[in-house]
């Protein structure tokens, strides 16, 4: 069953004023339980707005969002429940840390859910370990951590709510390659272990290509594509037309293809590209 179903979603800012702006324009799709979805689009494509609609931080002007088959705005007073089920990690989440200790900060969400102290304790420790923060971090002040550690603590603060759907908006922004790889693999592990739905918003094609099952491509508030990573990247020219860059490795394959070499252009990683070229080179000897 689909965990999230979006029907003809529309969001118009400042409707009726001269500043009217359609941020989301008739988007429909479904996300399966346990899926790892990537959302790409350049700045202003509506991707960040879309995910804020998914967890009820914004209310759509038209259309419906169903979570586990139920319209999330059916009872507007219960919208907090939706936010617990659809956990949202914003861009640069480390800027939301505020408690005296990492432990207390991670416990903020579960506490708001009204859980018992034992349950909170269990969740905090689990969430911290998922993001690679050991027990020794829990009693430290979040403001003494390094940039990368702060970000992990902040992500743990959302994971601790044990949401059915975890949304991460540009989680690797500003991290160096090492920090980025570590964080992505932790997210991947989280997904593999919890078997929950994860949505990753990014403009890094490389990141998205590596770990997601399907990719939703947004442009000007509309859904442009929703398909497997391989299928999306095989439409490289279209992506470039809407100002998105394909991974360099895919680009190399596209160039070779243009020059008449029969390579598969849906290559996503260096490893795949390497195998593709190698087999081609060996077979033509």
């Amino acid at each position: 069953m689909s965990v999230i179903k979006v029907e003809e979603l529309k969001l118009i800012y400042g409707a009726g004023t001269p500043f009217q702006k359609t941020a989301i324009d008739g988007v429909s799709f479904e996300i399966e339980q346990g899926e790892f979805l990537g959302i790409i689009g350049h700045t202003g494509s509506g991707k960040s707005t879309l995910v804020q609609l998914l967890n009820g931080l914004l209310r759509p002007t038209e259309g419906k969002i169903c979570l586990n088959g139920k319209d999330i705005w059916e009872k507007p007073k219960k919208i907090r429940e939706v936010r617990f089920k659809v956990g949202m990690v914003f861009q640069y989440p480390e800027y939301q840390l505020f408690e005296e200790t990492v432990y207390k900060d991670i416990a903020f969400g579960p506490k708001n859910m009204g859980l018992s102290d034992e349950e909170i304790d269990e969740r905090v420790r689990k969430a911290a370990s998922f993001t690679g923060l050991g027990d020794e971090y829990l009693q430290r002040s979040p403001f003494d951590l390094s940039g990368g550690e702060k970000r992990r603590a902040a992500i743990a603060g959302v994971v601790s709510m044990d949401p059915d759907v975890l949304i991460l908006d540009e989680p690797t922004a500003g991290l160096d390659p090492l920090g980025r790889d570590a964080l992505l693999s932790q997210i991947k592990t989280y997904h593999d272990v919890r078997k929950n739905t994860v949505i990753l918003v990014s403009h890094s094609m490389e990141d998205i290509a590596r770990i997601t099952d399907r990719i939703l491509v947004m442009n000007k508030g509309r859904k442009v594509m929703l398909d497997t990573a391989a299928n999306v990247f095989s439409r490289g020219e279209e992506l470039e037309k809407i100002g998105l860059r394909v991974p360099q490795i895919t680009k190399i394959m596209m160039l070779l293809r243009q020059k008449g070499i029969p390579v598969d252009t849906s290559v996503l990683t260096v490893e795949q590209g390497f195998n593709e070229i190698l087999s081609l080179a060996r077979s033509s000897v």
């Binding site: 390659p177 490389e206 360099q248 490795i249 190399i252 260096v270 590209g273 390497f274 070229i277 080179a281």
Partner: peptide
């Protein structure tokens, strides 16, 4: 990181 092009070339 190494640019993907450089890495591919190196591996091949």
């Amino acid at each position: 990181d190494v640019p993907q092009a450089a890495e591919l070339n190196y591996k091949l």
